[in-house]
């Protein structure tokens, strides 16, 4: 049954083709080992959309893949990090080799830049980063996005002004959505809600599409209302190998495999991209190559024990 708000359901291929253009600023949802839209990151790599600027808070393997495929030339974030599995190695190498410009912020600074974007205000004050190189060591080109000013109500008290950030398009994975884009995120939301509301376009991948009636009967669960959403992709396991709260645990084995390829770089990394992404039609084919039914069931069971 279609809704009066319009059915936005499409494939990842169609959504990325339609909404992610070359030179875009792309908002990356999720954090480290949790709830990253791997299905949409894969599709960006598969379609080879280049010259991207990737923005987020703690950016994980979804960012690392796009950087490693040579499709991004700038990131703005708090960190590139997979915590216990190490750093984001393709990102790190690209910065060290001068192929990628990293604009560093604190996490709250990034969150507030999205919040400002979501409210339609041009900038927002913060009292983080004062006295540190996050303010001092910025090139002329990038310094314009941060200004040290004075609190108008407390003379001689410095305050940092952050420019609002509105990505051209954001890619976010959620547990549930209806076909019009009323989205339910379960567990931590990190910066995803503010980023979605700040973005000009939003693509949601989700574990399951539910009826709009189900949204309306329990609307207190709606995390992002349909107004902000342009495309909805139903992709079970769409965050794999990162976790999806209440659905499945992260897959440590695949994380370690990816990290070893990313750390080595060169041919080994190209082989990963070719085997799992460029050489697959879609995310389901990736899943069948990267894992097996038994292991996936174990990741589901493992999550059930934690919630």
């Amino acid at each position: 049954m279609s809704s009066k708000f319009g059915n936005k359901v499409m494939t990842a291929n169609e959504a990325v083709k339609q909404f992610v253009a070359k030179d875009s600023v792309v908002g990356i949802g999720g954090q480290t080992t949790g709830r990253s839209s791997m299905v949409l990151a894969h599709e960006i790599v598969r379609q080879g959309i280049s010259n991207l600027t990737l923005v987020g808070c703690s950016m994980s393997v979804s960012m690392d893949l796009i950087v490693g495929a040579g499709l991004a030339n700038k990131t703005e974030c708090g960190t590139g990090n997979v915590e216990m599995f190490g750093t984001t190695f393709a990102w790190r190498r690209a910065i060290e080799q001068g192929k990628l410009v990293s604009k560093d912020y604190s996490h709250l600074s990034m969150g507030l830049r999205f919040l400002a974007g979501s409210l339609g205000i041009p900038f927002i004050p913060i009292k983080s980063m004062l006295g540190t190189d996050l303010l001092e060591q910025r090139s002329e080109k990038e310094s314009k996005d941060i200004v040290i000013s004075e609190d108008p109500w407390n003379p001689n008290t410095p305050v940092v002004l952050l420019k609002a950030l509105s990505p051209d398009v954001s890619i976010i994975h959620a547990q549930l959505s209806d076909e019009t884009g009323n989205v339910v995120i379960e567990g931590f939301t990190t910066h995803d809600v503010e980023m979605a509301k700040a973005s000009k376009r939003v693509i949601i991948s989700c574990e399951k599409i539910i009826a709009s009636d189900e949204i309306r009967r329990r609307s207190d669960r709606t995390t992002i209302p349909y107004l902000y959403v342009d495309a909805v992709i139903e992709q079970p396991w769409g965050a794999y190998p990162t976790s999806c709260y209440r659905y499945y645990e992260h897959d440590s084995a695949h994380f370690r495999h990816y990290q070893s390829c990313a750390k080595d770089g060169g041919n080994k990394y190209e082989e990963y991209l070719n085997l799992y992404i460029r050489g697959t039609r879609d995310f389901n084919e990736f899943l069948s190559k990267a894992s097996n039914a038994k292991d996936l069931i174990n990741l589901q069971k493992s999550m059930q024990e934690l919630v």
Binding site: G30, T33, G34, V82, M84, G111, T190, S252, L306
Partner: peptide, 26 residues
């Protein structure tokens, strides 16, 4: 394993947001 692990959400009073934690509390 990380700040995104379900193990740090177990029986929390709220799972909240980054701005709620780093902003509203810190």
């Amino acid at each position: 394993t990380s700040v995104a692990d379900a193990r740090v959400m177990h029986r929390s009073v709220t799972n909240g947001s980054l701005i709620g934690a780093l902003g509203g509390i810190l």
